[in-house]
């Protein structure tokens, strides 16, 4: 074999060796645990703390309101949809207060008249005509809505 070919093969061997070494040292630990990805990523993604805690947790303390709501038309709506996520409130209820929805603007997100909204599923009003600027909750109790 000619000398220059030998030298080149040597140079390539060194290069490939370095690449293999890098591959060995830089490949993450849990690679290919389940597939061609970092297995630990599954745990890391699952480790995030949920912010919405679920109605059952709310009812543990706020049982009277919960009982009222569960009989009404808003029973399928989770507390936190109107009051915001409760993960901080659950830990320190005195410091982290839940929020109150900002009046009629909030109600019409669901109840404004729109032809795309199925009539059978949701009651709709033309807000300006229906309440004439009055706040919805001055007539309707959102925990026990009446028609």
């Amino acid at each position: 074999m000619p000398l220059q070919v030998k030298r080149l093969l040597l140079a390539f061997a060194v290069f490939i060796g370095i690449m293999l070494g890098l591959k060995y040292f830089l490949t993450p630990d849990s690679w290919r645990e389940y597939g061609p990805y970092r297995g630990k990523a599954l745990i890391e993604i699952a480790d995030k703390v949920p912010k919405y805690v679920d109605m059952e947790t709310c009812i543990m303390c706020h049982d009277s309101i919960g009982e009222l709501k569960i009989q009404g038309l808003h029973k399928s709506i989770q507390c936190e949809i109107c009051h915001g996520p409760g993960y901080l409130h659950v830990d320190e209820p005195e410091i982290n207060k839940m929020k109150l929805p900002a009046g009629s603007e909030f109600c019409i997100q669901c109840h404004a008249r729109n032809a795309a909204r199925p009539d059978k599923i949701i009651k709709q009003v033309d807000a300006a005509e229906h309440s004439e600027g009055e706040n919805c909750i001055s007539c309707h109790n959102p925990h026990e809505p009446w028609l």
Binding site: A46, P50, D54, S76, Q78, C110, I122
Partner: peptide, 21 residues
Amino acid sequence: TLCYHRLKDGLDPACMMACPT
């Protein structure tokens, strides 16, 4: 992520939980 972090805790994904209908 289909709220992968909530599924693990037995909670519904946020969008599923939030849907009123």
